[in-house]
C-alpha cells in the first residue's frame, strides 16, 4: 500500500468516514474533524510511519495532502 493508501485507511478508521470521501485535497474541516481527532490521527500516523510530528507541524496540517507530503519528506 502506498503512503496515501495507508494515510487514508487510518483517517477512515479514526473519523468513521468512507474511503471514497477522502482525497488528497480533502481538508479535515471537510471531514468534520476537530483538534482532538487530528491529534489522535497524528498519533496513529506517527506509530504507523515511525516518525514524530511536532506540535507546530501539526498546526500547519490542514488537508490529507499536507499529511502525505509531510510523511514523504520525513521517511526514506
Amino acid at each position: 500500500m502506498d503512503i496515501f493508501g495507508k494515510v487514508r485507511k487510518i483517517i477512515c478508521e479514526h473519523l468513521d468516514v468512507n474511503e471514497d470521501s477522502v482525497t488528497l485535497k480533502t481538508t479535515f474541516e471537510d471531514l468534520d474533524a476537530d483538534s482532538l481527532d487530528v491529534v489522535e490521527m497524528v498519533m496513529a500516523l506517527e506509530e504507523e510511519f515511525d516518525l514524530e510530528i511536532s506540535d507546530e507541524e501539526v498546526e500547519k496540517i490542514k488537508s490529507v495532502g499536507d499529511i502525505v507530503n509531510y510523511i514523504e519528506e520525513h521517511t526514506s
Binding site: S35, L36, V38, V39, E40, V42, M43, D55, V58
Partner: peptide
C-alpha cells in the same frame, strides 16, 4: 490545552 495534554498524557 486539550490536544497537547492528550498527546503528552498518552
Amino acid at each position: 490545552n486539550g490536544p497537547e495534554v492528550f498527546k503528552f498524557a498518552v
